[in-house]
Design a protein around this nucleic acid. Structure first.
Length: 695
DNA sequence: GAGTTATGTTTTTTT
DNA sequence: AACATAACTC
């Protein structure tokens, strides 16, 4: 096997196959290459059976890519390696042990939207005011408890406050409801395997013997449950290799604890650590910018990431007038790049929040630029697709009350809240599912339709079943008669859904409803089934982790957007935003563009945001600043701290700590319009202050 | 029970 | 601005 193209550290990381190994891999240091080569090395040089290897990634996309790359190295043997996300791996274990865990074989998986629905319903049942107790907050609390392996029983021991007491009771009922519906949520996919392993040592040992070599990618983003799970699986053979970069830990809100990676050496005795510090991806300029940003984080392990590439272009910074101008600028730049022969797939536009994608979508469409939105509102979370999935799930698992309630009156069957309430009560009283509780009334005809479909499902392919559902429920007909653009899009999406089921059928031969439902339950994106490569990628920074592009536009670099408002309060949050910024910058190979807007529509209102503090952390010598000469910002006198002297006059020069030097061009009551020159040079602590200057 | 209007809320990020 | 929920008619 040829390892000559690897550098010394990479080679060592590949060849250190036994024992605990920590690979601290800086951004762009060839981490995936090392991982895939290592897997190939295990199989080809160390004669490890592909069946005995478990490789865990963080996203489906990463898993797919790793599989493909290993496949390129060793061919079809790659198919036998368990390469998946933690959640998919957990699902596999649950599927193989559902009976011990006390579930029926036909369990279904709820996505977060479904979970929220369940929680809302429980809260209603408990007469809780959703304004006093935010359903989402409760859901997050329950989810993080589960990820920290805190059961309701344990939660009870420290639930002291009012809110916590509420959470406790909702948590209890939520767990009961899920079990009763024969359904699991995402978190259960981690919690249940651990429970299983704790109670059944023999089962654990079976999996330990099965997965003798364990590799975990993005280890800095593991949460407690994932940490425990990895530890359990690998504790017999102790061949665990983890890869990560503490500076790229961006999932603390999901319970990720980057101490897991910092503690690895004390945690696993005799662990070996290898540092990958040579960056093969980015130009020196880009790397300098990334380093100068991340070094502002306290208490991090200093590392010495260096690039073998040349200086490259300067980083373009553009401060746009508003979010539309920001989009225009990007479009102009992209058109020039395309003219120069750059391929669409080598360009990415990144943003902090999904909400920002709207304007890009709109303007890219108008400008005729081919793009794809990666992640975001996934295909499977569209209403019509969720409806259809609910039909499929109910057919598969009649205990699934969540799905039943979703579709019992879709399309309209004249079944209202009252009837549903009756069903809930009856089901509760007799301890049966709502579906079973249906006996007569308008609901009966719904039940008949489902019963009929259930029979049909035994004899037809999945795609035919979908057709039959859309037909016999009247779903398709309702949309067709609507004759609106929206309905047409929904119909198109349903057609698209059928092309997915067809693709599944081609790939697997005949696919059962069960396999299909579980296969798709962890995927939010349809991406993998129709990925037209010739497109510009638009995505959040979270989704871009692990990817790289020649040309990267990082947008919305404004205080409040990036770093996000919700993180401004605590230093931990801010540091995570900074790591996010580090991730964004290090995605770029050739050229980086940084953008922000002076004015941006937020919650329906215009807001003026100062430039992001992260910008000021980059040395201006790395930047090529392009800002319109006469940008105007409206400043509300009431909103700024300023000199005692309130009497500003048109034509006066002022200094704003964010926007820098400017000239007052108009005063209307408390609103002052100020034309600023370029304003990113000096960002100061006190963000909201202006004062007069002599000129 | 369904449809319309008024009111309030949301947006951080994902499996 | 877009969306969800609540309140209000028919």
């Amino acid at each position: 096997m040829n390892l000559e193209t690897l550098n010394k550290e990479q080679k060592e990381a590949v060849m250190t196959t036994d024992g605990a190994l920590l690979i601290l891999a800086g951004a762009g240091s060839g981490k995936t290459r090392v991982l895939t080569t290592r897997i190939a090395y295990l199989i080809e040089e160390k004669q490890v059976s592909p069946h005995n290897i478990l490789a865990i990634t963080f996203t489906n996309k990463a898993a797919r890519e790793m599989k493909e790359r290993v496949s390129n190295l060793i061919g079809s043997m790659a198919q036998s390696i368990q390469i998946s996300t933690f959640h998919a791996f957990g699902l596999k274990i649950v599927r193989e042990n559902y009976d011990i865990l006390g579930y029926d074989k036909n369990f279904v998986i709820l996505d977060s939207e479904d979970s929220l629905t369940v929680i809302k319903r429980i809260m209603k049942e408990m007469n809780l005011d959703p304004k006093a107790y935010h359903p989402n907050a409760i859901k997050n609390k329950i989810s993080s408890s589960k990820n920290e392996l805190i059961s309701p029983e344990r939660y009870e021991q420290f639930a002291a406050g009012d809110f916590e007491k509420v959470v406790l009771e909702v948590y209890r009922r939520y767990q009961k409801t899920l079990k009763h519906n024969n359904s699991l949520d995402f978190d259960d996919l981690l919690v249940l395997p651990i429970e299983l392993f704790r109670k059944h040592k023999d089962v654990l040992e079976h999996y330990q013997d099965h997965y003798q070599y364990v590799l975990i990618d993005e280890y800095q983003d593991t949460n407690e449950a994932q940490y425990i799970l990895s530890k359990m699986i690998s504790s017999k053979y102790k061949n665990i290799c983890v890869v990560g970069d503490p500076d790229q830990s961006i999932y603390s809100w999901r319970g990720a604890n980057y101490r897991n990676i910092l503690n690895f050496e004390t945690d696993y005795k005799n662990a070996k650590t290898i540092l990958l510090e040579q960056n093969y991806r980015s130009t020196k300029t880009i790397l300098d910018a990334a380093n100068s940003v991340i070094k502002n984080n306290q208490g991090r392990k200093e590392k010495n990431l260096w690039s073998s590439k040349g200086e490259g272009d300067k980083i373009s910074y553009y401060r746009a007038y508003d979010e539309r101008d920001e989009a225009f600028y990007i479009i102009r730049e992209i058109k020039q790049l395309l003219k120069k022969g750059v391929k669409e797939q080598d360009i990415a536009v990144l943003y902090r929040t999904n909400a920002q994608s709207h304007i890009f979508e709109e303007e890219f469409l108008k400008a005729n630029l081919p793009f794809k939105i990666v992640g975001s509102i996934g295909f499977y979370s569209r209403k019509e697709i969720k409806d259809l999935m609910a039909y499929l799930r109910l057919i598969h698992n009649p205990k699934d009350n969540v799905s039943l309630m979703r579709i019992i009156n879709v399309p309209k069957r004249g079944i209202g809240l009252k009837s549903i309430q009756n069903l809930i009560e009856k089901a509760d009283r007799e301890n049966i599912s709502m579906y079973e509780a249906i006996d007569g009334g308008k609901e009966q005809s719904f039940k008949n339709v489902i019963e009929d479909l259930k029979k049909v499902s035994e004899n037809v392919t999945l795609t035919e079943l979908v057709d039959k559902i859309l037909d016999s429920t009247g779903y398709k007909q309702e949309l067709e008669s609507e004759k609106s653009l929206e309905a047409d899009i929904r119909l198109e999406n349903l057609e698209e859904f059928k092309s997915i089921t067809r693709a599944f059928e081609e790939a697997y031969g005949v696919i059962s409803l069960e396999d299909f439902l579980l296969e798709t339950s962890l995927v939010s994106d349809v991406e993998e089934y129709n990925n037209d490569p010739n497109r510009i990628s638009l995505m959040t920074i979270h989704s871009v982790k692990g990817l790289e592009f020649d040309y990267v536009f990082v947008t919305g670099l404004e205080e409040g957007i990036f770093p996000h408002f919700n993180s401004l309060m605590d230093s931990g949050g801010l540091e995570e935003e900074r790591r996010l910024c580090y991730v964004a910058i290090t995605r770029a190979r050739e050229k980086l563009y940084l953008l922000n807007a002076r004015k941006r529509m937020l919650f329906g209102k215009d807001q003026v945001n100062p430039g992001s503090r992260f910008l000021s952390e980059i040395d201006t010598s790395l930047l090529d600043i392009n800002t319109k000469e006469e940008p105007e910002a409206k400043i509300d006198k009431k909103d700024v701290l300023h000199d005692q002297d309130m009497n500003y006059e048109v034509g006066e020069y002022v200094y704003h700590d964010i926007f820098g030097m400017g000239r007052v061009v108009e005063i209307k009551g408390d609103l002052m319009s100020i034309a600023f020159k370029i304003g990113i040079k000096k960002l100061m602590k006190n963000h909201k202050s202006i004062h007069k200057v002599e000129e």
